[in-house]
Computed example of a mutant assay.
Amino acid sequence: ATFMRMKEDAMNNGQTKPGYNLQIGTENQFILNYALFPNPTDTLTYIPFMYSFAARYGHLASTEVADSGYGSEENYRFMEENGIEAYVKYNMFHKEQRMHYAPSPFHQDSFFYNAEQDYYVCPMGQHMERIGTKLDKTANGYQTESVRYRAQNCEGCPLRGSCFKAKGNRVIEVNHRLKEYKRKASERLTSEDGIKHRGRRCIEPEAVFGQMKADYGYKRFRHFGKDKVEMDFAFFAIAFNLKKMC
């Protein structure tokens, strides 16, 4: 178990308690799969959770719906390579769907990109040429690659105060692979099937967690150690599904 901040915070001071990050997969509000993780963020749980699903059923799910906590490059790549029809949001998806949403003209996503010659154009019309790449690793060891572009001359630019505050010429970093994954995800999520799946997601795992905690009072595990806690929840999941069938 890891010390985490809980949603139930009686003292309202952000205190931490030892716990697990419980992940569940549901369909028609039946619990199909569950797994427990020591890390508080959901991003790193997706791939091992899907492997646990495959170990239980002998195959990966063909269609998956998940919220923005799972929308990372590593997870999108896993879905694509395994032929999973994924309706998974990314961190800016909800904001982009607002009626009056207008991206800042000084944000790098608003810059024009010439894919053939590989350069960006800033709001003042300057070409931002490629100057190199930046490699990063996630906590899982997955390597990401971002391309760096730099403007030719920002000195004396009348838009500089609104564009950026740092010294020198503006440099942007773009993860082209993640950008393409987000574009595909947006197309799927805004399609007719995507709207239907998004509407069902809020009444699937969220409803199960609500019934679990509010209706049945199952808010904490009664054992210590991951093997015993997994046994604890397994009995609850079996009982939950049997009651749902009845």
Rank of each mutant, 00 (worst) to 15 (best):
M124D: 08
S52N: 07
R150I: 07
Y181R: 05
A166W: 00
G156W: 01
G225M: 10
C122F: 07
F209E: 02
F235E: 07
T138N: 05
I84K: 05
R188F: 10
Y57A: 04
R56K: 15
K226N: 10
Y149A: 07
T138I: 05
F209R: 02
Q126V: 00
A61W: 10
Y46G: 12
A151C: 14
N21R: 00
T41A: 13
F233C: 08
S191R: 08
F3W: 13
Y76L: 04
R130I: 07
G156Q: 01
G194P: 08
E73V: 13
N13K: 15
N33L: 14
F3A: 11
K89D: 10
F236Y: 11
I238K: 03
T63Q: 07
G161M: 03
A55V: 02
R200H: 06
L189N: 01
G58Y: 08
M79N: 15
E81Y: 07
C246Y: 13
I172N: 06
G69I: 02
A55N: 15
H223N: 07
D67F: 10
L135M: 14
M11P: 05
I84G: 08
Y57S: 10
M128R: 03
T26M: 04
K17S: 12
N13E: 11
G83V: 08
V121K: 00
G125A: 00
I47S: 11
F221W: 14
N28K: 14
L60K: 06
C122L: 05
K226H: 00
F233W: 06
E204D: 14
D67M: 10
A151T: 04
R160Q: 02
G83L: 06
N21I: 03
K243N: 11
C163R: 00
H94A: 15
H94Q: 10
R150F: 06
N241T: 00
M124C: 04
F236G: 04
